[in-house]
Design a protein around this nucleic acid. Sequence first.
DNA 1: GATTTTGCTTGATAAAAGTCAAGGCTTATT
DNA 2: AATAAGCCTTGACTTTTATCAAGCAAAATC
Lengths: 192, 192
Amino acid sequence: MFEVLLGNINKKISLTEKEQELVKTFFIPKKLRRKQFLLQEGEVCQYTAFVEKGLLRSYNVDEKGHEHVLQFAVEDWWIADLYSFLTGEPSGYNIDALEDTELLLINGSSYEAMMEAVPKMERYFRILTQNSLVATQRRLSGNISLTAEENYKQLIAGNNTILQRVPQHMIASFLGIAPETLSRVRRQMTGK
Amino acid sequence: MFEVLLGNINKKISLTEKEQELVKTFFIPKKLRRKQFLLQEGEVCQYTAFVEKGLLRSYNVDEKGHEHVLQFAVEDWWIADLYSFLTGEPSGYNIDALEDTELLLINGSSYEAMMEAVPKMERYFRILTQNSLVATQRRLSGNISLTAEENYKQLIAGNNTILQRVPQHMIASFLGIAPETLSRVRRQMTGK
DNA sequence: GATTTTGCTTGATAAAAGTCAAGGCTTATT
DNA sequence: AATAAGCCTTGACTTTTATCAAGCAAAATC
């Protein structure tokens, strides 16, 4: 149940057996079937979720009804609407499962309490968040400086398992382009 | 010299007098004149910089010679190429001063040593990085789901001091649009 | 096994944004 | 004071991407 999470933590810091047992107590296991929501627009994001198994996405829906994927999360990743989680404001995002999924949830007060109880976890989350920030900055950077084709190539170069597990129109949505555009970009690329 | 930094830290955690004195020892003060570089493409980013006074930007230059601003940093903010700083890889970005600037620099080993010496700083950087991540995610989200005009309006709504201190073409570059486009967007907006 | 549903592609067209070039205004520089 | 550099705007045009509509194939549902 906690293998993946503890593995992830131990990649960044090292916990004693006792600390590991303590950490476990702050999490709530939860299973989601494909297409179920973890969070819906308008709700407050109560939990940060660690993915033990499966695949989820966070996305918003614009006035025209188009979905825009902010994040995919597979095994060994975290997902939440961090803004809503930290501020308690209602979220503008949805999070749903794209595959049957097993999660470990932690709420705001447990999050704080856990770092109180196991101060090393402060370091874990600091490193985690730093890595996440680096990844998000790189994506943003690509978005403001590269073409659709270049961004797609960069995504492929990252050799991401997500490409094989997610329908193409969601990749388009993640890249910030229309599904038709991604289809044409791909044709262009094979032609060359 | 350290007023702004210590003020910033004390907004997020609280340090004793002794801890404050200790923290100070890890930083190197540095002044930059307008147009001077803190980091140039190809170099490894050795420092994370806290801005006591002034204004900087980080940006990359694409094959066509166009600059793309990833970040502005005014007083009370941090700036670096976090990717290069953390990995030791050469940076693809430049950081330069847009105004005469006073910085407090900390290098990688001091960064680690400081958290060792004052464990509360781990918490400070965790919170700092979380906030930075939230801001970057919101910007990315706008970039993939909004039009140029909507993104500009959102920037104005944020009531950011940067708008008054930076030439318009850099705002355009920050938004990921051509300077001519921003000019036209602004005309559109006043017309309505 | 038939029938929706979902996903991908393609073509025609429209809209958004980028590019190139010129002009004018203001601010630095000498 | 003259000159140069930087910045913003505007027009004409091109390129990129989005939109709308249709068709087909594969997968899911009944």
